[in-house]
């Protein structure tokens, strides 16, 4: 797992959203979220306004971290898929490309089998995009170009707290 800073650019953001929008339709699910393993929400599609997305992201990451800890204790690398079954809604949580978490919320209009199948395909596509994204941000950091915070002043920072 890379420990480097996560950076998201417009181009990849659009590509990611195309993939998860399609997954939302193909899997007949209600909401899909992508969350960084550190608990930051990357993107969400579907009925996102019905949910507290920030909390959801943080708890999902906590959940993945805790089950990852359990996995290591029994000698597994990680549990790459988690499934939570509720009375009406279910959560399918999976790890994409080692560092991003894909959360699919669905009800009885879909099924676990369908979600698993569609998630598998979408995960492969997402992995490729995130791989590209990591390379891109590493290159930008190396070349030192266009870092938006290089020019912030002490005043800018102080103003936040005024």
């Amino acid at each position: 797992m890379s420990n480097s800073q996560m950076v998201m650019y417009d181009e990849e953001f659009q590509e990611i959203n195309v993939v998860i929008e399609r997954l939302l339709k193909d899997s007949n699910s209600k909401v899909i979220f992508l969350v960084d393993k550190n608990g930051q929400l990357i993107s969400g599609v579907g009925e996102t306004e019905r949910f507290d997305t920030t909390s959801l992201a943080s708890l999902t990451a906590g959940n993945i971290a805790a089950t990852g800890g359990l996995a290591k204790l029994i000698g597994e690398k990680e549990f790459s898929i988690l499934f939570h079954e509720g009375e009406k809604d279910n959560l399918h949580i999976s790890i994409v490309g080692g560092r991003v978490i894909l959360v699919v919320l669905f009800d009885n209009r879909s099924s676990l089998g369908l979600v698993r199948l569609r998630v598998k395909k979408a995960s492969e596509e997402l992995s490729v995009i995130f791989e590209k994204l990591m390379k891109k941000s590493d290159e930008k950091v190396k070349s030192g170009t266009s870092f938006p915070f290089a020019e912030i002043t002490d005043d800018d920072i102080d103003n936040l707290f005024s």
Binding site: M6, V7, M8, D10, N38, Q40
Partner: peptide, 15 residues
Amino acid sequence: MSFINYASREINCKI
């Protein structure tokens, strides 16, 4: 590590 999102123009930090 902080997460900089150019698409939504957000920066997220963890304390």
